[in-house]
Design a binder for these strands. Sequence first.
DNA 1: CTGTTAGCGCATTCAG
DNA 2: CTGAATGCGCTAACAG
Lengths: 340, 340
Amino acid sequence: MRPTVHDIAAEAGVSLATVDRVLNGRPGVRRQTVDKVEAAVSRLGYVRDVTAANLARKRVYPLVFIVPGGPNSFLQNLTAEITAAAQRSSIERTSIRIETVPPFDPGAIVSVLDAIDPKTVSGVGLVATDTADVTGAVDRLVEQGVPVVTLVSDLPGSQRIHYCGIDNIAAGRTAASLIGRFCAGRPGNVLVVAGSMKLSDHAERASGFAAVLEAEFPELGLIGPVETNDDAGTVRRSVEAALAAGPEIVAIYNLGAGNRGLIEALAAHKGKLSAVVAHEVTQHSRQALADGVFDAVLNQDCGHEVRSAIRVLKARADGLDLLTAQERIRIDVFLRDNLP
Amino acid sequence: MRPTVHDIAAEAGVSLATVDRVLNGRPGVRRQTVDKVEAAVSRLGYVRDVTAANLARKRVYPLVFIVPGGPNSFLQNLTAEITAAAQRSSIERTSIRIETVPPFDPGAIVSVLDAIDPKTVSGVGLVATDTADVTGAVDRLVEQGVPVVTLVSDLPGSQRIHYCGIDNIAAGRTAASLIGRFCAGRPGNVLVVAGSMKLSDHAERASGFAAVLEAEFPELGLIGPVETNDDAGTVRRSVEAALAAGPEIVAIYNLGAGNRGLIEALAAHKGKLSAVVAHEVTQHSRQALADGVFDAVLNQDCGHEVRSAIRVLKARADGLDLLTAQERIRIDVFLRDNLP
DNA sequence: CTGTTAGCGCATTCAG
DNA sequence: CTGAATGCGCTAACAG
């Protein structure tokens, strides 16, 4: 039978209230008494029953998620997952508010961040552009005691307490390996398409990709990355232009969004490329994989990311530690054959 | 504010005890009264607070896990994950017992299964050989009301309530795709090495692999599967023999364990194969990937499998439903570049 | 500075 | 068949 606050109280020779004060680090207890209680705690190996505590406290965790809106299918999925989590709120003791901001608009993110009241919010999750003003706003919030986690794309220089997303350098490296192996020695160029180098996930993928391509597949040259702001139309035009331009392109890596545009551009090039790799399983990329237009799709499980973000934020809110293994977001590699 | 049992009692005009009886499906309540309570429940949208219920009930979930022992690194990892979960027992209200049985010994599994007392155990997880006697023992247990889940390898014909593991047909298909693409048209044969066709996971991988190889890569012939009982020494000898035998082997797929033996056999064949694919990230396979001896390793996250098994068993024990997305075990595809 | 007491939402005796 | 009362482990007024 694990010890309870009663056992601690008896062991330390004090009352329940005092034990509670010490346990929760509240003031108004003599140094001596604190020591007695702490001694009892460690002597009996006491661990607080968080569920009982939450019950007594009627605790809820008010959380805010900031996500860019727009046509990006992946971000729409992410939003849907947050919504799904919000629907489980009553059972998970959360209270989730979703703030949609215009895409590629650091100012909008900053506004939302600055408007958050540290008294009434116990955690924030956001998909951020890696710019100084956003970092500043995040740091301000963290200093006020509100834990912040980044989703999908990290804010490397910031005080965010956790990043819920994949290792994007490794993702870029993986893409390069797949493309290099699929090309199997055939020389030529690889076109790299990105959304924006202001997104740290895109920048990291690009650098990981370039590193492996150069080191391990010298027969392949690199064209790009061309930036498209994740707009499908721009992606289509960029790819068409590159394909028409001449220097033989044998593979394409789209490390950003706008897969729809890529698919359209490839319609006229059936089977001419050795490898096409893109990111995120969506309606479009799934179809492209099935049709053999894409050869591989790297993916991050946004449901997992959202659940992880919530766990991390809750754990931090009551000073618990977590299972790091459970919070690692995998780089899913999907071929036509292992699509879920 | 979500409704509580008090609200239901007031709404239905009965006492707390009666509400509780209806909620927990206990007998001794008039049909009329049951209806009144149920009406109130659905009218107010009541959902039971499981944590409060567990507190009041001092509930613990006694779980039994049955895992084969022996030198198999993957199974050792699995056991370690179960042990880790057992250490979290007090906070998760579980009480976990691990039963180690000799590998490839259906009889031993059956003995353990039959010795389980349905009164004192609320769930069972096992790594099973797909044989009739094991299926029978599982079904007996389920019929006595003890939920059983399979880990790693399923028991397709049984009454197990859930399978915590990857889609092994898809895994085999994925391996074939990778090997086919890595060979990039070079003709030759692929050697398939398996542990035992009595393990449904091995059988399924083999069939998925063969199907894709035949349909999509006609230039590649298939040799095997040779069975090794997951013994590293046998793997080594089998691979060496096949490699020496003549018919040009350009790739190897080890869909079972014993990677150590495969690595040893390949030491003399550096760089002669177009592709080597194996399963499960362990100390050995990780090194082989880093060294370029293996080109890809398919993996199942056994930590995830164990946590999932526990969630599923607990949820079943109190009639809750679960997030299916969270319980899907992914086929991890690891190249040298995305090893965690 | 410390102790007493009354719940949180639910389950479970024990009477009636 | 039904209800009142007690307690699970913990927190939070409110006294002292």
